[in-house]
Amino acid sequence: MSAVPISFYLVLSAILFGLGVVAFVFKRNIITIFMSIELMLNAVNLAFVAFARARGELDGLVFVFFVIVVAAAEAAVGLAIVIMLAQNRQSLNVERVNLLKL
């Protein structure tokens, strides 16, 4: 069905994960930082599906399902925290959230 080598998918997964890390480090808006976490989760999901395909087993797909469920829960709680933070600080900039910073 597919003649694309698995390594292509893994390289794409690594590139997307790297871009997610770059976004996580460079962005200053807390919502965008959350989105870069989602990007990294997506990259890992792609690697899971590719490995499941390479091994001919479906356990990887079950893991992807659970990752998506946990990502949904994480987004719900995380965005609630973002709303609370925005109400308290009137800003979405993570530089302003420095209460625990030395």
Partner: peptide, 10 residues
């Protein structure tokens, strides 16, 4: 792992 081709594996 990268050498494995998706085609015949599973």
């Amino acid at each position: 792992i990268g050498a494995a081709i998706a085609n015949g594996a599973g």
